[in-house]
Structure formats: structure tokens, C-alpha cells
Design a binder for these strands. Sequence first.
RNA 1: GCCGAAGUGGCGGAAUGGCAGACGCGCUAGACUCAAAAUCUGGUAUCCGUAAGGGUGUGUGGGUUCGAGUCCCACCUUCGGCACCA
Length: 846
Amino acid sequence: MSTDRRKPYPFDRLEAKWQHHWDSQSTFHAPNPGDPGFDPAKPKYYVLDMFPYPSGTGLHVGHPEGYTATDILARYKRMRGFNVLHPMGWDAFGLPAEQYAIKTGQHPAVTTAHNIDNFRAQLKRIGFAYDWHREVNTTDPGYFKWTQWIFLQLYHSWFNPATKKAEPVSTYRGADPDLVRLAYVAEVPVNWCPELGTVLANEEVIEGKSEVGGHPVERRPMRQWMLRITSFADRLIAELDGLDWPDSIKLLQRNWIGRSEGAEVIFSIEDTAQPVRVFTTRPDTLFGATYLVLAPEHALVEEITAESQREAVRAYQESCRSKSDLERTDLAKDKSGVSTGAFAINPVNGERLPVWIADYVLTGYGTGAIMAVPAHDARDHEFALKFNLPIRQVVQPPGEEPWQGFTGHGTAVHSDFLSGLPTQEAKQEINRWLELHGKGKGTVQYKLRDWLFSRQRYWGEPFPIIWENGRHNAIPESELPLTPPIMEDFKPTGTPEPPLSKALDWVRYSETARRETNTMPQWAGSCWYYLRYCDPKNPERFISKEAERYWMGADSANPGGVDLYVGGTEHAVLHLLYARFWHKVLFDLGHLSTPEPFQKLVNQGIILGEDGQKMSKSRGNVVNPDEIISEFGADAFRCYEMFMGPLEQMKPWSTSGVEGVSRFLARVWRLVMEENQAGEWVRSAALVEVPLEKPQLKVLHATIKKVSEDIESLSFNTAISQMMIFVNAFTGAAQRPISAIRTLLKLLNPLAPHITEELWFLSGAEGTVADQVWPEYDPAALIEDELELVVQINGKVRDKLTVLRIATSQEIEAAALASPRAQEWTAGKTIRKIVVVPGKLVNIVV
RNA sequence: GCCGAAGUGGCGGAAUGGCAGACGCGCUAGACUCAAAAUCUGGUAUCCGUAAGGGUGUGUGGGUUCGAGUCCCACCUUCGGCACCA
């Protein structure tokens, strides 16, 4: 494809012109309450993109998919009279910048600034209607000052189980507030990645390897900052209900939080003072327990292990410790474990149960100990078979299924006072019994763990914390922002000591106090950026009360929060969960007016390469948006991305598809313009002020209706189809009514803003399209006097019939029966039934 | 293994239970042209038939209905997520 091929219309010139116009006029600046130009009569609309990490490789075609969708909504709502907040910014802390910096010796701040300039230029080239006055950057001290401030809110708060809310830690009545803070320090087994020189969150470890780079990850205990997100588990589940999110994403979050109801049961251990607590979701099977299993790391193992087993237990613990997570969680492997030689007493019947340790029991979940019921649990069953432990039925399956290995609900058997009860009732009964006898109680467990919040990196927000005499303390708010030290060498130390520990002057806070040298994870900045956009330059607060109430608050017409949030599914769990958590804490503390940040969420599907495979450098199927824009223009690029298919769906790229959309835009161009003898574009002589013919009127109003509805429902592909139908209908006309063409320009403007502005101007209209009011359709124009009906015989189309719109069912029936084809098909047959669907069809059943 | 989403022409896809395949790509014929590109006009699921017309057809098999791509049941395939969570 030659690049000097003649352009179907001069998009290169006109796109640059309008981008400059929007920039210089601040066309899409949204005023806050109190700002000049603010109109309190206008409703607000907050439409948000997931801001990008400004990588060195620049924008790929996946970014603009979601960004174009929100841009269409922003421009559409603006024409509908809304005050639209549509901002963009940079999630610029993070590992790649730091690693690139280490490789090149350039400071990450330098490369980050360069990458941001590149991203901004690329986005402007696509013509997005962002309010660039509101740009935020998570690495800007004016921004991360407030990230640190929010951390201090967490640090100074606790979750009051009585009120189920975050409260200032001063309301805590216990002795040591450090035990309950939402931000706390703990010695926890963490995912240590030697290659990256840092700890990773569970979420950042995929199959025992780091999500970034795929390096091996091992577990080791380390002192870390944690955020008590588990306190909010119930609310994070419950408050999903009111959100307009895809059900699949809500489900993903619920599964991630992983709430399960069950019971804690207390087993005493022979010859030991300490009892073992186990968690089970099937307390109804307590009579079927034949042994206990503790996680190898369980605190009681040391105490209870019999002398004879001490050696074997120690060896097993050692082998587990050296295993990577990958090996340990490999499902294909055999069950392993050793006996401790100790015996537990089943509280319900006094039986002696051997106590084992095995790595299929995890330290981090429940109590780190289980009662094994091999008859009715697949893992226990496998373990019992391998080690020849007894298997005892206590549930009778409802059908013909064999009881051994049956894990469903049935009826309790061989279970004393539970026998005969259905599983549900048996659970309640045994919970009552346990509580009555002080042997346990019903509890709830979550898969969600507290959020491991510290990283051993340079390029992140420093914690506003100092250490003195082994105790941590917050620095005063007046010392924020706490900027990282300027360092020549910010390489990982190779030990768990973070790079900041090398900046000795910075670390030294006072004679006796030292700074915390960990930094926050990349998630921190993205947890609240949507709030900062509302009031991006405020030096006094992270967001002013007024701005928060206006953009995020609820009113009678609006449940509050961001009105539309579009981004990829890769953030369906972590980012959205973390941001909701912070939002709830800030809400509880009275800083925000609604408990949920994102009212409506839409996930765009990923764009595959032309070969139907995931785009990747190694496959060589990556599409560069810059090249597409150079060849076809930004409008064609935008429209093609929207025309590919439904927004949420995964779909392959097709460059010839871009050509098709480009042809469509060129046809729009030629509705208004034509070439003269000299090959210059001049206003078309066919464009005149004439009244519309009836069929034209119908197409026009059908198009207004369809495009309006389709934009509201984010069905941009069919909106474009309808506008193609419009263009096809008007292209052939000898005289093209100027009013109808201008209406099309308004409808097309949100999708293709440059060409429509230029044609608006060239057609001699006043002002700009962006400032026009969105057109309304006239239902009367869609009504025809005569309708074409389908005549079916036994559900098959046999004829067509034109009837008056006002015809009665009887008249339609008669006309259908009289039609020649119906006569043929019904000849000699009995008519059993006639179904008339007004405006659609007649079905004759013979 | 569990959970979720999806299967429609050569391709991307469209279709409040009511004419399956809108719109676009590709292909194809024609117009314009010395010619090509571009542009414009028409055709394009499949089988039988010169045609008129008819049969078949939305992953597979059943069902509900006057009527099913759409609703119900079972199954197959693909993709995504979680994964020894007791």
C-alpha cells in the first residue's frame, strides 16, 4: 500500500486543524462549581477511562478502543446538555520504569516524563475530548502527597466490628491500637522474587512466577505493611448488588473474596494444654472425621509432635519450605504428609483421631488446620487411601450415587443426634451443639487475604512513617509530600533491604528515628485517581467537599459515583477491589458522600491481531495506531475500532475493515464536497435547501432514533451501520437536502469529530458541531400509511401483502387468504387457525 | 476439577419469540477510462431448477410454540477466570 496514494479526503490537514482548535479553545474543559462558566442548571456526567501506564512502547490499538467509547459518550452527553467530566492521566509509578532506568542509567523520572509526552501526543492525535486541564500524574509530588495522606487515614483508623465501619483509631478501647489499625505491620510469609528484588502481592504471582517478567518466586517470612481489606469483605460483596456492572465481573469479585460459611470446631489434643481449632464448611460431617491435618507451618506442630515422629516431621517441614509455590500447588502431584504421633479428641463422640501434617492444608486459609472426613471430601479421600486411614460414611446421597467420595448434600447417617437430618439442618443443629458445649461455633471464612502493601523498590511512594525504638509512627501531615531521595544507585540491594535504605541521609529522620524504606505498590496511585480528577490542583485537600459532592455525589436522578467507567477485564478483580476498599474507608471517615466509586462499569474486549491471535511482538502481529492514523486518519481509526463489533467482545483486527470505514467517511465527505476541474475540493452543487422526500424523511428520523439509542447502549457498531444506510440513501440523490446532511453531521460527530466539524464549516453552517444540540427524532416520520405484511402458511413465508396501516385484523385476514400464493397453498386444505401479528405478519395454519 | 462467556455465509458481524444473514470486508459483473486506480450501479448462504419456484440452513440431539438463532433440557467445542480455600 503506497503511502503517497491520493487521500480520499484531506483528513491530515483538517484533523490537525480541529485538534489545535479544541486545544486552544479548551472546548472540552469542564468547569467545577464556582468556576467561570459553570452552569448549575446542567446535570453532570462523569465518564472515566482506566488511565494508562505510560510505557516506553507507546499506545497500542487496545488502549483507544475503550478510550474511543468513552469519548463518544462524553461528546454525546455534552451535546445533550451535560457538564461532562472526561479526564486523562498517568499511572506512572511502577516496575518497568524502574527496570528500564536500571538498564539505561537514566532516572525513572526522566523516562517517565518522556513517555508521558509521547502518550499525550498520541492521544491528542486521535482527537479525544479530554479536559487536559485536569491531567494527573501519580508520580507528581502534588499528587502523591495525597496518596500518602490517604495512607495516613488508613493508618489512623480501625474497623469497628460493632458499627461495621472504619473509625478513627481513637475510638478503639483496647490497649494496643497497633493491633487493629487498617494499615499495620506484620511478619508474614511473602512472595519474594529474588530476580526483581522485591515482594509481590499474591495477585502478582501467577503459577509461582512473577506476573511481570515471569521470574521464580519463593516464600519467606518478612516484616511488611498490610492493609486490612478483609474487614471490608462482607461490604465489598454486599454493596456490589446496587452497581450497574456486568454480572460476570461481580461474580469474579465475589469469587475472589470467596466467602464461605461453616464452623470452627475445637479439638483438644492428648497430653497437651493447647487445643487445635479447625475450620470446616461441613460441620454436619463431624462424626465422619477420622483424622486431623495441620499445615506444616502450623504453630502447634512443634508442641504436639511425639518424640518418635520428631525427625520425620522436621524433615517434612523442611521439604515443604524449600518447595516453590508452583511445586506445592501442583494438583497433579500425589498427596504427601506425615503423622505427628499426636491424637486429638473428637468433641462430639470422644474418639481419638491421629493428627497429621500435610501440605494440602494451607497456613493462610481458615485456621490452618482441618478435620478430615475422607468419605465426603475428595482431598481427604485421596489422602486417606494413600495412607490407609479409615473412611466412614456419615452422609447418605439422595439418589443412587455411592456414598464414598460423595461431597454433595444428602441426609446425615451414623451421626448420633444428627442422623436423619438433611445436610442444611444438620449443619445448624451441630453448630448449636458446638456453641452450647463450648466446642466451637458457626463462622465465616474468606479467601481474600489482607493486602500486602509494601514493596522493596525505589520508584514508588515512600511511606510517611518513621521507626523509633522498634515502634512505628506517622510523620505529621505538614511534612507531606514525602519525596523519595534523589539517588544515583537505586538498584535492588539483592537482599530484602529496600533500595531506599542506601540513602542514609534521607533515612535518618532524627537522632533516634529512621524512615520506613519500603515504598507503596503501583496500585496505590490508581486507587483514588478518579477523585483527584474532580479537583486536580487543590493544594489544601485531596478533593474539595464541593467538587466531591458535585461530581461524585448522589441525587434523586443519580446514585452517585463515576457514571461510566470503561476498561479491560484485567482489572476486574484487583484494581476495582482495591479502589472500592479505599473509597469505603474514606466514605466511613466522612471524606466522601457515597460508598461506591464506580456506578456503571463496562469492560472492552481485547483486540486480537489480524491472524486471530493475541497481539505480541514475537508474533509480529502488533498493529501500531500511528500508522493507521497516518494512512486513514483519526476519524477512520476511531470509527473502525467501534465498527469492529460489540465493545465487550474479543475481536480480530482487519486493516481492510479500516479501509471500508474510511470509504464511508469519504462518502460523507462527498455528500458535501465535490472535486472541480482543477482537482480541488469545492462545495457540492447538489447540496441545496430542498424539502425531504418522504422516504428520505423516514431514513433521517430512523437514523436519529437508532444512533441515539445505540450510543446510549454503547452499541456503536450498529450506530455506524445505520449512518452507512443513511449515506447510501442520500448518495444517489440528485439534490441533497442540506438540513438532513447537517443532522447527519451532528449524529456522526461523537464518532468522527474532525470530519464532521470541517464539513459543518464548509457547508456554511454557524458555530461548531460540538456546540449543537443533539437532534430529536419525529415518531410521525417513521409511520407509513401502508405496511408490507408477510403471509405465512404453517410458519413459512409464502407471500407478501401491502395493506393500509389502519386495516383491521379481519381485513388483513381476508386479504391474506385472498392472496394468490395463499390460495395455491391452502387449496383443498382446512384452515385450522389464523394468527395476525399487527404490522408484521399473518400466519395461516392448515 | 469448579465458575463464567460464546458458537450464525469465505471473514467481522446484524436480528423486542415474527421475512435469518442488516451494515462492512472479500469476491464478482457492469458504467466511467486509451488503460489502471479511485468512484458509481448491480449480484453474492447452500442444493435442485433455464426460469418461475421449491428443498435445506444459525455447534449437536430433543422439547415448548401458529411460529425458535432467540425460550427449556441434555450434550459437544472454543475462549476467559479460579484452582488442594477444607
